[in-house]
């Protein structure tokens, strides 16, 4: 058995023990997300327009992550609706910034890996760095929206007479409490992924100025910042969408949550 299969099995078993059916669904969503990601790259390799492939893949990934990971319908709907809005906002931000930062392709640090490869592949890699940035934010947007929405649904199910204004404020409070650790998830996730690069900078003795203008470094930091912006925008938007959803359901006497079913 390969290490990937073994670790995958361990994760699946733990997820089923902790989350039951929902845990199994979450595991499946991870698998499906991988398939969507891999086939998006393959489609781009076949010269489908990269940004359109990414947008479609992005919406599918958000839906898979949220509807297959989430439990109740209020949390999932609110989170999905919010995260699609945030995705659009981020794309509008990422495209111009990557364009002026010109972080396409590979850096001088990659030259060893590029040996013997043809670089004239006929695909504009500037678009690909936009794709990379957009994809790296998807998980963060979905997670932030889910965390706020799940917290609010839980408060609603324990305290269903709560005023919708207070609910918005509770959403911001949960958001303010989690923003710090969400930032640290992103920070550690990205820096953990690129630890080797920083060790390289330190070992080779890059100057501060060289690091600040380095293609790989700038592209990495931009990805962190885009994810952080995504999370920041997600907090008030989720609370806002949830408040409206609750007002709407109250007006029509619809149930808030199917937790008790």
């Amino acid at each position: 058995m390969t290490t990937i299969t073994a670790l995958g099995l361990v994760l699946l078993i733990l997820m089923v023990i902790v989350g039951g059916k929902q845990g199994a669904q979450s595991f499946l969503s991870l698998l499906f997300n991988f398939c969507v990601l891999f086939f998006s790259v393959v489609m781009i390799a076949f010269h489908f327009p990269p940004l359109i492939v990414t947008l479609v893949a992005g919406v599918i990934v958000l839906a898979l992550t949220i509807f297959m990971g989430g439990g109740d319908d209020l949390t999932s709907q609110t989170a999905f609706f919010t995260s699609v809005i945030v995705l659009v906002v981020l794309v509008l931000l990422i495209v111009p910034i990557i364009h002026i930062a010109q972080v396409q392709g590979f850096g001088q640090e990659d030259s060893e890996d590029l040996e013997g490869m043809s670089l004239l592949i006929g695909i504009n890699l500037l678009n690909i760095s936009m794709v990379t940035a957009i994809i790296s934010t998807l998980g963060a947007i979905a997670e932030a929206a889910m965390a706020i929405a799940a917290g609010l649904t839980e408060i609603l199910s324990q305290h269903d007479q709560i005023a919708s204004k207070q609910l918005f404020r509770d959403g911001m409070t949960i958001g303010k409490q989690i923003i710090g650790t969400t930032f640290n998830t992103l920070f550690f996730g990205f820096f953990g992924g690129f630890l080797a690069l920083f060790i390289w900078f330190s070992g080779v003795g890059y100057t501060f100025g060289e690091i600040l203008n380095d293609k790989v470094f700038v592209s990495e930091i931009l990805m962190i910042l885009f994810s952080m912006i995504g999370v920041i925008v997600t907090v008030p938007l989720t609370a806002f969408v949830m408040k409206h959803e609750v007002d709407y359901r109250r007006k029509r006497n619809l149930p808030f949550s199917d937790l008790d079913k």
Binding site: G19, N33, G69, G71, E143, A147, A150
Partner: peptide, 9 residues
Amino acid sequence: KTIMGPLIN
């Protein structure tokens, strides 16, 4: 269990 899936993602 609701947020663990999204967080792994």
